[in-house]
Design a protein around this nucleic acid. Structure first.
Lengths: 229, 229
DNA sequence: GCATGCCGTCACCAAACCGTCACCTTGCTG
DNA sequence: CAGCAAGGTGACGGTTTGGTGACGGCATGC
């Protein structure tokens, strides 16, 4: 149903993705590098872009930036394919404005699920643009969050956690969802680990003057909310 | 809880997995090779398959491919057990359609965690839409009920109870029906417990300005109604 | 090698929530 | 209007859930 552009230089992976997409009722377009991807998009905008982190010539990150900088392509959601375990790239990737990440090696089912989720999330659109809430500002380059001139340094995990909250504010997220979105697929940690990071993040935010930004919804999870209740 | 099929020719490992599964509240089925596994699945589909990479006769990889090629078994998630940790076999494993892999030797804890993760991903979030009625707005995404701009915090049970009332408004529900729908059919609690929760819910709604929304029908049960009578 | 920082896990504590009961109020029936 | 049945309500332990401090492991940098 949906037109999905695959930008991936490795033929076998491109093929695997293509088959998966077709089987789940999508319409795959293929490109091997950034240039041909751009050319394809000139003709008609796809509904979603699957973008490999590493590409020959221009990297996937650069391409993502270009897509985000162009008014015409800004609204097209992007899912990044990245090798796993690279903390730095995960954080850098946040700058590019990708909507989701899938770490290689990935399962076709996992990929399909995330595509579905991103496409569904498109409809309400409206917000979830840049990261700008409550005077909070995230700086991916330095892992810092500045608030009221007060800057606090966060650990990588807390940084990604806060970033996720800021791009999905007001909604309640279960520990499972947070593990999925912030820690990533294929990682196995206890759900209670989320609690601890929430606590550390709260501590950091508090130190920067913001209080009670992250609320607990008993039995359901956590939420970042602008208004205290 | 979940029926999990173990396909593993080594008895000691099969036993270890079986114990682990039972301990984590699952229901293990066992098969020693691909053929008996297929036969077992003919009878009833399991919720998940734990598949050894190496099997006598037909390898686990082949079995995975066969399961993925068959419409009937395609939806069953697969976790691969592989002896070697090398990246290549992991990639291959996922290409065959496995949802995750665990490398031997594995810790029972890791296995349990991955099973949980895969099963969790199977049923995605129930993406419930907000329900709105008579100035009341109940939004599962934020887990909030707002009335006239006033947000009220509810406990989990009260939340489910109100949700049920709002999606089944204007009808009278007996305590038995409410226990069935809100608490679940396998829970054993006194019917009078419903009364108490009704009271708590009424209190919360009253605090938000809404009064007499939930009416008592003597001898029959309760009803949520827009117009007061 | 040693120090540092981050992370995941655990043990323990506090608070929230829940089911039940006892007792009171309401409403129906004769 | 007496008597009874059904529902309302406040209180109380028990259980579950989340908060928090501490600890060991691992990686990184010196």
């Amino acid at each position: 149903m949906a037109r999905i552009l695959i930008v991936e230089d490795e033929p076998s992976i491109q093929e695997l993705i293509g088959v998966t997409l077709t089987r789940t009722g999508h319409d795959p377009l293929r490109a091997n590098d950034a240039e041909s991807a751009l050319k394809l998009m000139q003709a008609e905008l796809p509904d979603l872009v699957l973008l490999d982190w590493m590409l020959p010539g221009q990297s996937g990150v650069d391409l993502a930036r270009r897509l985000r900088a162009d008014d015409r392509t800004r609204s097209v959601p992007i899912i990044m394919l990245t090798a796993r375990g690279d903390e730095q790239s995960k954080v850098t990737g946040l700058e590019t404005g990708a909507d989701d990440y899938v770490t290689k090696p990935f399962s076709p089912r996992e990929l399909a699920a995330r595509i579905k989720a991103v496409l569904r999330r498109q409809k309400p659109q409206a917000t979830e643009d840049p990261v700008e809430i409550e005077g909070l500002r995230l700086d991916p380059a330095t892992h810092r969050v500045t608030a009221n001139g007060q800057a606090v340094v966060l650990g990588p995990t807390e940084f990604r956690l806060l970033h996720f909250f800021m791009t999905h504010a007001e909604r309640v997220h279960s520990r499972a969802q947070l593990l999925d979105s912030v820690w990533g697929d294929h990682v196995f940690v206890e759900e209670r680990t989320v609690d601890v990071h929430i606590r550390r993040l709260r501590g950091a935010l508090e130190a920067s003057g913001h209080d009670a930004l992250i609320q607990t919804v008993r039995g359901s999870g956590y939420r970042l909310s602008a208004q205290k209740e």
